[in-house]
Structure formats: C-alpha cells, structure tokens
Simulated assay, not measured.
Amino acid sequence: MDQADSLRHHGDVDAEPGLLDFAVNVQGSGPPAWLRDRLVATLDGLGRYPAAAHDARARHGVAERHGRRPEEVLVLAGSAEGFALLPALQPRLAAVVHPGFTEPEAALRDAGVPVVRVLTSEADGHRLRPDEVPAAADLVVVGNPTNPTGVLHPAADVRALAAPGRVLVVDEAFADAVPGEPETLARDADVPGLLVFRSLTKTWALAGLRAGYALGAPDLLARLAAPRPPWPVSTPALEAVIACSSPAAVEESRLAADALALARAEQAERLAAIPGVTVLPGQAPYLLLRLPDGHGAPVRAALRDAGIAVRRGDTFPGLGPDHVRVAVRPALQVARLVAALADALTAVAA
C-alpha cells in the first residue's frame, strides 16, 4: 500500500458486510427513534432545495450549544468536508500531528500543500508537545481526543499551538464521547486562528448522512467555505444538526458518554488480560492495542476468518503493523472479540 492509499484507508474498508464490526467508531447501527422521526419528517420536503432559513436555524442551535454566535458556525456535510476545504486557506506549510486522522493530510497533499508530520511517541503516552511544531507552519491540525490513540490532550497544550498568522484546526469528532468534554476548545472564541471541527457521525450513528460543523471566526469560516458549491448540506443533515444541538440531545449524549466510559474501562481490562496484548492509555470510544512483534497482520487475518473486523494500525503515520484499533462495543460482542483474539495470538505464536 503506497502513501496515498494509506492515507485514504479508513475503518469502513476493514468492516466488510457480515463481519462483527470493531473497525468503525460509530456507536450503534442507526440513530435513535426520536432522531429518525425528525429525519423522516424532512423527506416530504426533498423536492425543494435546502433553505437558507434552515441553515440559519442549524447555526443558531450549534451556537446555543457551544456559547458562540451563529456567525461563528459553519454547517458541514460531515467534518470530513471541512478537511477537504482546508486547501482554500492557502497555507504555505501545514503541520499535522500524528498518529492522527489521515484525511486532513491527504486533502492537503492532494492540493499540493507541503506537509510536515509531527509525530508523538508511544514512549511518553503520545503526549502533545507544542514546541515540536515548526514555527514556519501556518496551518496546524491536531485531533482531540486523537484518533487512533484515544489520547485526550490538555486544552492548554492545544491552545499553545496557536500563533499569529497561523490557523489551528482541532478535530473534536469524538469530544462529545468523553464525559464532560473536559478539554474542548469549542467555546474558545478568543483563540486567534482557531477552527474546531465537530461531527455528529459517531455519537448519533449518522455516518451515511454526513453532518457536522465548524466553529471559528466569521472571516476564517468565509475563507474556508469559499470553494463550496451551492446547497452543500442536505435538508436532512441540517435537521440533524438542529436536533442534535438541542438541550435534550446534549443531555442524552452526556449520559451516553458516561456509559461509554464505563464500557471502555471494562473492555480495556478484558483485553489487557490476554497475554501479549498491550492496551495503550486513552479516553475515546476506541482502544489502541499493540500486539507482539510480527503478530499484527496474521492476527488480523485470523480475526477476519473468525468473522471479526478490527482497524489496522499501520496506515496511521507513526504506528506499525502490530497496532490495531478496536471500537468500544457491548459486553457480549467484546466477549467474542476477546476469545477470538486470544485464540488468534495462540495460533500465530505456535
């Protein structure tokens, strides 16, 4: 797999139909009933173009949710659209913190933007070190919590990446899955050059709908949005943003995050009990595992033969073939993973 293919590899490629899916970090197979009803109610209006008033309602709802002004919100067709738009900012040098979500780097490289990788180290828990980012970088991208390590960086360390003349992009796609969202910068309207990307895909199981948003200064959002076509966000996606920004939905996601944290801790304990499996520290709705040297590829193949999909780690810069990422799943599914993983490791070792 060459560099370009590696950057474009995502968990949905690993999760073929019929496999028990630990590769994709979406919670559940679809949105809750109340949200589904809201989306279905938009279908009768699909003969009309998405309305500016609908977009305004979505921006207002997001603004209320994060203590921002509506003009500081840009509704996106998923946060991945925001990454695809980054070249519109015309950076001279982009720095991308890795291991991390690879789509920002892929989009920048496709547009001919020079990219430098800033690698965190497993030896110190993949801690973010702002002083390692080149001063010449006028665009910096970091995830918080980072995918795939699950590390939640202190907000102060992330803010330290901001600098005059620099755009700081913080990917908070999984922030609402961490109880209390303790290190979010979503409310930080005073940080110069800050863009925060949020996704509704994971918590609300809306991967097929494509819904998210960006938070930032109005002039910065205008630059980001300049190349967009007319009506870039569908009517159902706008409705999803409105619905998921309501106080009731935010409370539901808070309770879900609490439950997810408990499930994550239990899953980490069960996986760590398997001889040869190292569970790396993290706080996201997925876990990064390190397997014994040389075991990664054959173990992943054995798991696939057992009907289980996990996310390969070697397509993330800074990780190797013996890293795998697994989503947090219900206890019965975890039991199946634990048994299959233990069997696979035993078979490969033999």
Rank of each mutant, 00 (worst) to 15 (best):
G47V: 12
D322C: 02
V169R: 06
V115S: 01
D171V: 12
D138C: 02
V250I: 02
V133F: 03
L271T: 02
A222T: 14
P218A: 01
A189S: 14
A349W: 02
Q3N: 11
G320E: 06
D157M: 07
R69Q: 14
G150R: 09
A257E: 13
A123I: 10
V140L: 01
I308M: 10
V324I: 15
H98A: 15
D219K: 05
A162F: 04
T201L: 10
A248L: 13
H9A: 13
L152Q: 12
R109A: 05
L39A: 01
R65V: 06
L35H: 03
L224A: 04
R8E: 13
L19Y: 01
A259I: 03
A259W: 13
D14C: 11
E181V: 12
R311M: 15
A63F: 13
A211M: 02
E64I: 05
S6G: 11
R254I: 06
E64F: 00
A257W: 11
V113I: 05
V310D: 09
L85H: 11
L209H: 02
S6Q: 14
L303S: 04
L289G: 11
G193V: 01
E132D: 13
P330E: 11
A263Y: 04
V118Q: 06
A207I: 08
A189T: 12
L303D: 09
A257M: 12
P50W: 10
D188M: 03
A306H: 12
G143H: 05
V133C: 01
L238F: 08
L332C: 02
R325T: 15
R300E: 12
H9N: 08
P218V: 12
H323L: 06
A205W: 04
A226S: 13
P134N: 03
L168T: 02
L119H: 05
E266C: 06
D219N: 07
A53S: 15
P275L: 01
P285R: 12
D44H: 11
R59S: 08
V191D: 01
L291S: 03
V140N: 08
A155F: 06
A94H: 02
V96N: 01
A56I: 09
L224W: 00
A23G: 12
L19W: 07
F316D: 07
R166G: 00
Y286P: 04
R57P: 00
P134Y: 13
T146Q: 11
F174Q: 00
R228P: 00
G193P: 09
A52I: 11
L195E: 05
R8D: 14
F316P: 11
V116P: 10
V115H: 04
L89K: 02
G82T: 00
I242L: 13
A211N: 06
A155L: 06
